[in-house]
Design a protein around this nucleic acid. Structure first.
Length: 423
RNA sequence: GGAGGGGUGGCAGAGUGGUCUAACGCGCCGCACUUGAAAUGCGGUAUGCCGCAAGGCAUCGUGAGUUCGAAUCUCACCCCCUCCGCCA
């Protein structure tokens, strides 16, 4: 969530941010109104409460009928006031939860993905002396992917990864963990279920994405859409030492997504499924250096793409297309020759203090001039390591042979103990 | 899932209805003493909110309740520990 004081003082900037993100800026005014009403009620409530406290003290010294009836009257007034106050606060907080993070000023402004800016293209697109096939045809032919059986067993948007596809998953996970732990990332396997209150704090139950979540009603738990969601709260309610920053993690988890609102989109295959595995990078950073940290995470993504020798491009996501919690977002899109297009395979976001405020993670900042110590909200960043399903798609399509086999990327051959996947 | 014990400031830990405005201790910060340090002494050391300020309000795991008044009593939930059962 945004800082309440920031919205009070810079309502115009909050409105502008919402407009850029295709949200209704009137929400800000709704917030301001509820906030003002709440503050007025709070002032009266606090005064009355002070009266009550004084009265209680008097009563503790000596009771009298007069004082007691006065206190009883006060109690009733306070109860009414408290209800009204709680109501207003709920209204205010509801409005607050409908305000996304504000994009940095230099983020390209745009309505939708057509406004995204290609930053660079890297790698050579493979050339084939035959018509390249799509991954699903290849994968089904080789017995690597089975979505038909998965549909019978679990429904649409599920898939079985079989044989070397399953082996490739572990090879990719291993490659990512090897690469990133060598850089000091702490390896992690986080929970995939999360309490509603914590999830809210992470800004991932906001209006625009609540329908995207699986909820276990009986247990009041959500299934996470990414390990980001439970890695962020790893340091919930903590104050981290400035010298310990940045704190970087590489996590592996299954991800669950309803894919509501994407009916009819990418319905075939395993590109868009309800369940997939993903390696994720997460960083708790000093706000002074979070932009730098963001570029670093992006460079890690690119390094791993280059290790796989996959052609990709880096795209800076425009305001209208970027995530709810993000102040800046880059995507890595990988070339898919079977489809003749780039598709998003990685994402990399700086959420600044939008999430850390929600899960209460601070760091001890030392003022360089005065030496004074202050606790401030930390910046939190997340980035895809490998989204396994989509990387399999990219590998299958880019490494296909005329005979319908798949060459194994050099860097994975050691993990897979083979150079090609055939029948 | 069952039985029992517990959750209090950075840590440790007292407090079982009204000077709790949360003891004592440790740690931390400042000052004094000291050549310096240690030791000692004195003072200060949670967070959030309302307010221009003075000041006020809230918070003893969370939420609700009883009461004029709750860390303290009641209920529900969460978490931790011990034991039993079940389980990869």
């Amino acid at each position: 969530m945004l800082d309440i004081n920031f919205i009070r003082e810079h309502a115009d900037r909050a409105r502008a941010g919402m407009e850029k993100k295709n949200q209704d800026p009137k929400i800000v005014d709704k917030f301001l109104r509820a906030d003002e009403d709440w503050r007025a009620k709070t002032t009266i409530f606090d005064q009355l409460k002070a009266e009550q406290n004084a009265l209680s003290k008097e009563l503790s010294a000596g009771q009298s009928e007069d004082l007691l009836s006065k206190a009883q009257l006060l109690k009733k007034r306070l109860a009414d006031l408290e209800a009204a106050q709680a109501d207003l606060k709920a209204k205010r907080d509801d409005a607050l939860s409908r305000i996304p993070n504000i994009p940095f000023d230099d983020v390209p402004v745009g309505k939708d993905e057509s406004g995204n800016k290609v930053v660079r293209e890297v790698g050579k697109k493979p050339e084939f002396d035959f018509a390249p096939k799509d991954y699903l045809t290849l994968g089904e032919n080789l017995g690597l992917i089975n979505v038909k059986k998965a549909a019978e067993v679990s429904g649409s948007r599920f898939g079985y990864l079989l044989r070397d596809a399953a082996m490739l998953e572990f090879a990719l996970v291993q490659l990512a963990f090897d690469t990133l732990t060598a850089k000091g990332f702490v390896p992690a396997v986080p929970p995939v279920m999360i309490k509603p209150k914590v999830y809210e704090g992470m800004g991932r139950l906001a209006a625009d994405q609540k329908d995207e979540r699986y909820y276990l009603e009986k247990d009041e738990m959500y299934l996470v859409g990414s390990s980001e969601h439970t890695m962020g709260p790893l340091h919930m309610n903590e104050v981290l030492e400035e010298s310990s920053l940045p704190r970087r993690y590489v996590a592996f988890s299954t991800c669950f997504r309803k894919e509501a609102g994407s009916y009819g989109k990418d319905t075939k295959g395993i590109l868009r499924v309800h369940q997939f595995d993903k390696v994720e990078m997460f960083s708790f950073a000093n706000p002074k250096h979070s932009e730098e940290e963001h570029r670093f995470l992006l460079s890690c993504q690119e390094e791993m793409m280059q290790k796989l020798e996959l052609p990709y491009r880096v795209v800076e996501i425009c305001t209208g297309d970027m995530g709810w919690t993000d102040a800046r977002q880059f995507d890595v899109e990988t070339w898919l020759p079977g489809q003749g297009t780039y598709r998003e395979t990685n994402s990399c976001s700086n959420t600044t203090d939008f999430q850390s405020r929600g899960v209460n993670i601070k760091y001890k900042a030392t003022d360089a001039a005065t030496g004074e110590q202050k606790k401030e909200f930390i910046h939190m960043l997340n980035a895809t390591g490998f989204a396994i399903g989509r990387m399999l798609i990219a590998i299958i399509e880019n490494y296909q042979t005329k005979e319908g086999a798949i060459r194994v990327p050099k860097v994975l051959q050691g993990y897979l103990h083979k150079e090609a996947i055939g029948k």
